[in-house]
């Protein structure tokens, strides 16, 4: 089975959103907000990484879903809520965490490095 970990908006929807912005706000020749231009560049960088990594991520996600016996993240989420995985919840957490890592590798890889747990002043 194959799966798509990256959720929505899809890569195509992201490109569409940037195209719409160019058609609506950029081609008019009016001054473009540097903030919106930076956001557009970031969105295209996400799509660029997904084009590069997406096929491998889909394959890995498919393996995870197969291991858990579900068709997609919707079924997995519903199963967790219904208690279907209560006897293998550690395994589910490990696999879900892997998929979150893949999502960040596409959406914002720096977030993986930059964030320390910073929970030091809370009791464990």
């Amino acid at each position: 089975m194959s799966g798509r970990p990256h959720g929505v908006p899809t890569a195509a929807e992201l490109v569409e959103a940037v195209r719409e912005w160019i058609e609506r706000d950029v081609v008019t020749g009016a001054p473009v907000s540097p903030f919106h231009a930076r956001v557009a560049a970031n969105v295209l960088a996400i799509v660029e990484r997904e084009l590069e990594l997406g096929a491998e991520h889909d394959r890995r996600h498919g393996e995870r879903l197969d291991q858990l016996g579900v068709a997609d993240d919707h079924e997995l989420a519903a199963g967790i809520r219904a208690g279907r995985f209560d006897d293998r919840i550690d395994e589910v957490r490990t696999l879900v965490r892997e998929s979150v890592r893949d999502k960040l590798l596409v959406a914002n890889p720096r977030y993986l490095d930059a964030r320390a747990p910073d929970i030091g002043d809370l009791p464990r």
Binding site: L14, A17, V39, K103, V106, N108, I119
Partner: peptide, 28 residues
């Protein structure tokens, strides 16, 4: 953005920030 209520690449991009919150949950 996706429903058409407010088309904006800025709103669309926020959809790809959800995994940051998932990551924060795993860390916390």
């Amino acid at each position: 953005h996706r429903s058409g209520a407010a088309r904006s690449h800025e709103l669309a991009a926020i959809g790809r920030r959800v995994c940051e919150t998932e990551h924060d949950l795993f860390l916390t």
